[in-house]
Design a protein around this nucleic acid. Structure first.
Lengths: 320, 320
DNA sequence: TTGTACGCGTTATCAG
DNA sequence: CTGATAACGCGTACAA
């Protein structure tokens, strides 16, 4: 009976309602969420699996997600895959075991079989930042190709022709698309792409550091570098500093991702900025929409593709 | 029966064990964590309440915590208080409702009654970064006073006398201790403290920006600024740049917190660095120790106070 | 409108 | 060592 008024369902009279409410306060009763979950099979919990909370893009995305979720009484369980599919599989398994109501995933490169099996099951899923093709799972992304294209066009417009790129991890959509944008821009302007100017940075600071060093050792080094994410920007800048290379005089630099510190640098960094906080909020909206809709089916959620914006500061200099 | 072998408790024979295990695999059985939690009152979940995941100190601390927790099968529920005690209370309530096995809290300034009530209840708690006095709750902190003292001594040693400080939020231990270290250093060297050189930045970028602008407007501005956390460093640097102030020639700058970007700045920033990743790991160890010990009591956990280290780079220049 | 009894999937207990 | 059975606390169906 008491359950009825507290849970606010079924029939009850005003009189009993008052009495129950009073008693509840007196005993300072709190409903047991665990028991409720066991009964309803709902946990009011969302699992979030990203690569690394330590980077600007992901922290702010997660913050957006979490803020929005709290507003609807949802809690977030956060996991970092570090781009290892082993971690991905293990974390996903525990998230599912914990009966999360929904999953926000940034899928790693490599074997997708576990994620695919999940997607075919009943759990609501949203992909963020990247997607796996061929699955009916909506995604919140950014037009990476367009962003990269705009960045490289900017460089070309400034008179650069020997433009290097420090790529992310092959097989991750985000990385591949940014590379595609780079190639497309060069092609459009009839600038030959050169393998020697394409470096693997695997989205990691240390590898970008090494890659940049290699570029500097070339007999004919590039005049500009396009660096494909935040940690790699760090590595690259560090290598440039160590090499005594002046930015932008000796080397123009443009980065994908726009961490707060980009504007305090000397010179302030020109970057491609992603609306990560918004992406986090949208991701939550999308899981919630699916959760609300379970059973009813029919509704198909379109991929959301946001536009990154080029923020021009000083690291590419002026027309050569 | 099956529960016995799967849960690995009670008595059972090897024969039945094999059979049960086979059957379990065949049906790919997964134990229901919710039901287990209902029964055992254990959720294998830790609630983490910090001010803002968006800053370097907290991201890396949380990362350490999470990595360690995952190793023991624990999940983390993360909440951001934004230093508002209203948020603190609400988040703590939902965390308790969710029956987390332990709590890692960075208590906000203001009314501590709710946290105190919690501490007197049975939930294992660890404070991080700050503590509330008079409670038998262990904490993982840094010697903020010593860190600040060393920073200001460094400035004094370089010949500075008009040293400004941009403080955090009054009432938060971290902030008060850093201020105390500043005052102590000045006193030790018989340098008078001046109210006009003490500014409130409330740990926020925008307020530090404004505070720095004010300092620059003084007839007789300081020759050095000690900025008490990461977001405020951003604000301060921005104001300095806008004002065309050269670092360190016109103004020496030293910051508390050592975000990755401190070393890419021009000039690279001299900072007081905290071992935040380690602090996160220790925090988990401490909750776990308490969880393992519930009922047995007797064991008292000492506060852990780590030493921050002064990282000297270029933003304070050489001897004047 | 109210009371009650059952089941969610575990773990724990108590006879066999 | 095994099998049956009672809780854990909630939601709900069904009978009153």
């Amino acid at each position: 009976m008491a359950g009825r008024v507290l849970g606010n369902y079924g029939y009850y009279s005003q009189a009993t309602k008052r009495k129950v409410l009073e008693a509840a306060r007196a005993l300072n009763y709190t409903p047991n969420v665990i028991a409720r979950s066991l009964r309803t099979r709902l946990t009011k919990t969302i699992g979030v699996l990203i690569s690394d909370i330590t980077t600007f893009f992901w922290t702010t995305l997660v913050r957006g997600l979490q803020d929005k979720a709290a507003g609807s009484g949802f809690s977030i369980i956060l996991c970092n895959s570090d781009e290892e599919s082993k971690n991905e599989r293990e974390y996903l398994r525990t998230l599912v075991e914990r009966n999360v109501d929904g999953l926000v995933i940034s899928p790693t490169a490599g074997n997708h079989s576990y994620v695919k099996r999940l997607a075919r099951s009943e759990v609501p899923i949203v992909f963020v930042d990247r997607k796996i093709r061929g699955l009916d799972v909506p995604s919140i992304r950014v037009d990476n190709r367009a962003g990269a294209h705009e960045a490289v066009m900017h460089l070309i417009g400034l008179g650069h022709e020997r433009i290097a790129i420090i790529k992310g991890i092959d097989g991750i959509e985000t990385s591949d698309e940014r590379f595609a944008g780079y190639v497309q821009a060069l092609n459009e302007r009839r600038i030959p792409t050169r393998d020697t100017l394409v470096k693997e940075g695997r989205f990691r600071k240390d590898e970008a550091f090494a890659a940049t060093k290699e570029l500097l050792r070339m007999r004919n080094p590039p005049s500009a570098i396009f660096v494909c994410n935040e940690p790699m920007i760090s590595g690259s800048i560090l290598a440039l500093k160590e090499g005594g290379v002046r930015i932008p005089e000796d080397m123009a630099v443009i980065g994908f991702d726009d961490p707060v510190w980009a504007s305090y640098m000397d010179p302030p960094l020109t970057t491609v900025s992603q609306p990560s906080y918004t992406m986090g909020m949208l991701a939550f909206d999308y899981v919630l929409a699916q959760i609300a809709n379970t059973g009813k089916d029919g509704q198909h959620l379109e991929d959301v593709i946001l536009k990154p914006v080029l923020v021009i500061r000083k690291s590419c200099g002026a027309l050569r």
